[in-house]
Amino acid sequence: MADAPEMADIHRTRVEDPVVEAHDLTMAFGSNVLFRDVTFQVARGEVFVILGGSGCGKSTLLKLLIGLYRPSQGEIHILGEDLQAAQGAARRDLLSRLGVMWQSGALFGSMTLLENVMLPLEEHTRLPRAAREEVARVKLGLVGLSDAANRLPAEISGGMAKRAGIARAMALDPPLLFLDEPSAGLDPITSAGLDQLIKDLARDLGTTFVVVTHELQSILAIGDRCIMLDKQAQGMIAEGDPRELRDHATHPTVRAFFRREAA
């Protein structure tokens, strides 16, 4: 059963011209409700974090936002458009304006990192081959992988695969990037480097990031705003500035999460 609204730490911010807008989202697999009535908006240029414990539906929510799943109920607008309703060329155009970094990197094993990054450019732009290669080298340089451009995914570490995944997601310079667990399983130094990269890209390129993570340090380092999902509550139990939530949360699960206490 969902928590009573007054228990939750939801400090909703009204966003003008939101890049992502989720309204009353409910997701159920058969009779099993994962979450219900999830509503939030993401502002242009901010780093928005979706957080929560294991199994609360963070990754499912991400897949709803990028149109891989259909919500059982509710509406999603991405860059002002309804991704679920968009078909054909309109859908293709909308998809070219968002990038996704998958948890494992999801790089194509038969292609070098450079070819992985060049693939979206080949599909969506009219750049000549030499230009595509030049642009792909810039993206790999941005994530610090210039010297690994000719390596296959099987020849690089997990951290490098995640960075290459970000480079590929950024191939078309989309205004909106979704990152699924970018720092999971990485050492603190690599993880901090990735956090810095996200902040730099948001600042310099004005990219909006929607990041799914449960890494507390990353959340506090990069998050402008966040929402927290909870398995027991079957929905959102917090929304706001992660640092504010850390210091002033009243909901016991939110407090436990930010203070790293056993629930």
Partner: peptide, 20 residues
């Protein structure tokens, strides 16, 4: 200028000596 500087730094990084 900020984007130019980022891209310039990215391209200045050493490239692999040779392909596989």
């Amino acid at each position: 200028a900020a984007v130019m500087e980022r891209a310039r730094t990215a391209l200045a990084a050493p490239r692999p000596a040779s392909g596989p």
